[in-house]
Computed example of a mutant assay.
Amino acid sequence: MRTSALAAGVIGAAVMAAVDEIVFHQLLGWHHFYDRSTPTAGLLSDGLLHAAELLALVGGFFWFADLRRRGDLVPSAAWGGALLGAGAFQLFDGLVNHKVFRLHQVRYGVDVLPYDLVWNSAGALLLVVGAVITRRAARRHRSPAHPRG
C-alpha cells in the first residue's frame, strides 16, 4: 500500500514539475528555475530541472509498472500518492524555492502576493485531497476483506 503511494508520489511530483516548467518557464516565460544570474544560467537551470523531472517520471513509472506486474499495486493509494507528490512539489517550490532561497518568483513586475496565494493554496489542496484518499485507501486495505497489509 505504502509503496503504491510512494511510486505514484514520485510521478506526481515529476508531473507537477513538468507543468510548472512547461507553463510558467516556457509558454508564459515568467521565470526560470534560477533567476538570480544571467539568462544563460536561467536556461541551464531549466534544463537541469527538466532532466531531473524526466528521470523522476521514468523512474516512478518503472516502479509503478513493477508494482502492477507483481500484483502489489493499490490503485487508490497510488492516486492519493500522486496528489501528495504533486502538492508536495508545489508547496516546496512556492515556500522554499520562492521565499526561503529566493531562486525565482512566480512572476516579476507585479504584486506576487496573489500568485503566491493561489500557487501555495493549490499545493495545500492537492496535499489534503491526496492525504484523504491515501488514508481511505489504507483503511480499506487493512479491512478484513483485504487481509494483505
Results as ranks from 00 to 15, higher is better:
F101R: 14
F64D: 08
L49E: 11
T40N: 07
V74P: 11
G87Q: 02
Y34A: 13
H25V: 10
G87F: 02
T38W: 09
P144F: 03
L83S: 00
R2A: 14
A41V: 10
W63F: 15
L117I: 13
A5K: 04
S121Y: 13
H31F: 07
H50F: 08
A82R: 01
L95K: 09
Q105D: 15
R68V: 00
A77N: 05
A7Y: 08
R2T: 11
A78E: 00
V110Y: 01
P39I: 06
I133H: 11
M16H: 08
D20M: 04
V10Q: 07
G80Q: 05
L95F: 10
P144G: 06
P114N: 11
G9Q: 03
G123Q: 07
L83H: 00
A65V: 00
L27S: 12
W119P: 14
T134D: 06
G47D: 04
T40H: 07
W119K: 12
Q90L: 02
G47T: 04
A88W: 04
H98E: 05
T40W: 05
R102E: 15
Q90C: 03
V10I: 07
L84N: 02
E53A: 15
H146L: 03
A131S: 07
G71N: 02
L6I: 12
G71K: 02
M16Y: 07
R148W: 09
G59C: 11
A52Y: 05
T134A: 14
V74C: 12
H31I: 10
V74A: 13
L95C: 07
P75D: 09
R148V: 03
A131I: 02
V128P: 04
R148Q: 13
